[in-house]
Amino acid sequence: MINRFEWAFGRYLLAILFIAGTAQKAINPDPAQELLVGFGLPEWLVWPALVFNALAASLLIAGKFLRAIGWALALYCFVTSVFHFVPSDPWQMSIFVKNWALAGGCLILSAASVSRT
C-alpha cells in the first residue's frame, strides 16, 4: 500500500522542478531559446515548453491524470536530455543523467497511479 504522505510529497517535489522550469523560461527565456536555436529548432518552442511545465506541475500537485502526465513527463525528460548530451562538459552531462533519472521517476509515478485506481 502506498503511504498518502509519501505519495503527495513525492508529487510535490517533482512539481517544484517543473515550476522552476516554468519560472526560468518566463523570467529569462534567452538561454533556453539559444539552446533550441543551437539545435536548429525555432526559439518560439520555449513557450509551449513553458506551458507544458506549468500544466504538468499543476496536475502533479492536484493529483490528476497521473498515469498520462507521468508518461508525458518521462517523454519530455528523455527528449530534453538530448540538449544536454555534451560529453566534454561535466555539468551538462549531470543534467543529462538527471533528466533520465527524472524520466524513471515519472514512469514509476505512472505505474503507481495504476495501482491506486
Rank of each mutant, 00 (worst) to 15 (best):
residue 3 N to S: 03
residue 4 R to P: 15
residue 4 R to G: 15
residue 5 F to G: 14
residue 6 E to G: 14
residue 9 F to A: 12
residue 10 G to R: 05
residue 11 R to D: 04
residue 12 Y to A: 13
residue 12 Y to N: 11
residue 16 I to L: 09
residue 20 A to F: 09
residue 21 G to K: 12
residue 23 A to N: 09
residue 24 Q to Y: 12
residue 25 K to P: 13
residue 26 A to P: 10
residue 28 N to Q: 08
residue 28 N to A: 09
residue 31 P to N: 05
residue 32 A to H: 15
residue 33 Q to I: 08
residue 33 Q to K: 07
residue 35 L to Y: 07
residue 36 L to V: 05
residue 40 G to W: 02
residue 41 L to H: 01
residue 42 P to L: 00
residue 45 L to V: 02
residue 47 W to D: 06
residue 48 P to R: 01
residue 49 A to S: 04
residue 52 F to E: 01
residue 53 N to C: 08
residue 54 A to M: 10
residue 55 L to G: 12
residue 56 A to H: 04
residue 56 A to I: 00
residue 59 L to D: 07
residue 59 L to G: 09
residue 59 L to M: 09
residue 60 L to T: 04
residue 61 I to T: 10
residue 61 I to A: 13
residue 63 G to S: 08
residue 64 K to V: 11
residue 64 K to G: 08
residue 66 L to P: 03
residue 66 L to W: 05
residue 67 R to C: 08
residue 69 I to H: 10
residue 71 W to S: 08
residue 71 W to K: 06
residue 73 L to G: 01
residue 73 L to V: 02
residue 74 A to H: 06
residue 75 L to Y: 05
residue 77 C to F: 10
residue 83 F to Q: 09
residue 83 F to L: 11
residue 86 V to D: 13
residue 87 P to N: 03
residue 93 M to P: 01
residue 96 F to W: 13
residue 97 V to K: 11
residue 99 N to G: 05
residue 99 N to M: 07
residue 99 N to K: 10
residue 101 A to Y: 00
residue 103 A to F: 02
residue 103 A to G: 01
residue 104 G to Y: 01
residue 105 G to T: 01
residue 105 G to L: 00
residue 106 C to L: 11
residue 107 L to E: 00
residue 111 A to D: 13
residue 111 A to Q: 14
residue 111 A to N: 14
residue 112 A to Y: 12
residue 113 S to N: 06
residue 113 S to T: 04
